[in-house]
């Protein structure tokens, strides 16, 4: 088969796009783990103290 005459599936194109993988690979865990976690750290309420 000659170059270009072949159809590639979208997934194959996605897997071959190392820059896209790099981008998603950084953004996804950073949002899901780090940003969400830091949000919880900095919004934790103060202990209600009953005097």
């Amino acid at each position: 088969m000659s170059e270009g005459s072949e159809e590639y599936s979208a997934v194959q194109k996605f897997y071959d796009n190392i820059w896209l993988l790099l981008g998603i690979g950084i953004v996804l865990p950073t949002v899901l783990f780090t940003v969400w976690g830091l949000y919880e750290v900095y919004t934790l309420p103060y202990l209600p103290i009953v005097k």
């Binding site: 934790l44 309420p45 103060y46 202990l47 209600p48 103290i49």
Partner: peptide, 13 residues
């Protein structure tokens, strides 16, 4: 369940 608390406040408790 968790909260922030300063060392002074906790010592007082």
């Amino acid at each position: 369940e968790s909260y922030r608390v300063s060392a002074e406040d906790f010592e007082a408790l």
